[in-house]
């Protein structure tokens, strides 16, 4: 009896294994591949005053099928300097904030990795804890802190350090503050998980062989944390390129980011085809860093196994 049961379970095993793999693929299909295909389709349509506001690619005239591929949206992106500038400016903001996150996050991750295990968990909690509140609320809080009669300015005036409030809100500085604040955990966590695995005897060996502490850091710790640096940087860089909320709430009218341009095309101009083209181009641009990230992440995973 039990033999029979066992055999029937074993026979079903490949099926259940297939099911386990199928779930994430189904998820990717539903929420990534299909929306992407829809956006791709719309990006080759023309705007129309209709519902939905674009033309169909495939039309039937009697028994003839007519396919219209409109490349004008993509050509428009290249010709109008607004889009090129928005892409460049987004990339610049993303690269600079990634660098800032790295400069700030590395010492934090390093310090946490070297704490004793009990305090280490508390410190990690403190890094993660803020993300339990809504992202939107936390960015709103920064408006309250940075505005002219906000917490920061009142504090500085109270101390007598300044007479007039500093204009921080609606400047690039505010955007950088918001981005670095919001994305820092994404830098700290992968760096931490890399640094905590380091063998402290390697530093002792370096010191034993004549390397001063700073030199030992540069020649041993830093190169060995390369995978963590790349993973953290990509986790920050990729979402920041398309960031919309932070530049919208903390930036000025002149803060040009592709996420905002996309929003305006879609909601203000109701030009779905151009908005879709903007999104597709952004995705293509991000494929390079995503591939790099993926490669290093799998490397990290492998190193965890050995």
């Amino acid at each position: 009896m039990s033999h029979k049961l066992l055999r029937s379970v074993r026979r079903r095993l490949p099926g259940s294994r297939w099911l386990v793999i199928a779930v994430p693929y189904l998820w990717m299909l539903l929420f990534f591949a299909i929306p992407f295909a829809i956006a791709l389709k719309i990006s080759f349509a023309s705007a129309a005053i209709a519902m939905p506001p674009y033309t169909e690619l495939v039309q039937w005239a009697g028994d003839k099928m007519q396919v219209t591929i409109n490349t004008a949206n993509y050509l428009f992106l290249v010709r109008d300097s607004l889009y090129v500038n928005a892409y460049l400016s987004s990339l610049e903001i993303a690269v600079v904030s990634t660098a800032l996150c790295l400069l700030l996050g590395y010492p934090i991750a390093y310090a946490i990795a070297r704490m004793d295990p009990a305090t280490r968990n508390v410190a990690l909690m403190l890094v993660i804890l803020p993300s339990w509140t809504s992202f939107l609320i936390r960015i709103y809080a920064w408006v309250g802190i940075l505005k002219n009669n906000g917490l920061l300015n009142n504090f500085l005036i109270g101390l007598g350090l300044i007479d007039e409030p500093l204009q921080i809100l609606h400047t690039p500085v505010a955007v950088y503050i918001g981005i670095v604040y919001a994305y820092l955990p994404f830098m700290v966590l992968p760096l931490y998980s890399n640094l905590v695995k380091h063998d402290h005897r390697l530093l002792e060996a370096a010191s034993d062989l004549g390397a001063r502490p700073w030199k030992a850091f540069l020649t041993v710790t830093l190169p060995l944390s390369k995978a963590g640096i790349i993973a953290g940087s990509m986790l920050v860089l990729i979402p920041v390129v398309g960031e919309f909320v932070i530049p919208e709430m903390l930036g000025g009218a002149d803060t040009l980011m592709i996420g905002r341009v996309l929003w305006q095309e879609f909601f203000n101009n109701r030009d779905w085809p151009v908005a879709s083209a903007v999104a597709i181009v952004m995705l293509v641009l991000l494929i390079v860093p995503i591939t790099i990230f993926h490669r290093y992440q799998s490397k990290e995973m492998e190193s965890k196994l050995t």
Binding site: D199, R201, L202, E204, A205, A206, S207, D208, L209, G210, A211, R212, V220, L224
Partner: peptide, 17 residues
């Protein structure tokens, strides 16, 4: 350690990977 004329062969070697 880095100023001592002493070198050590570590247990399980601590080679730089």
């Amino acid at each position: 350690p880095y100023e001592r004329p002493i070198n050590m062969m570590f247990q399980s070697y601590a080679l730089f990977p």
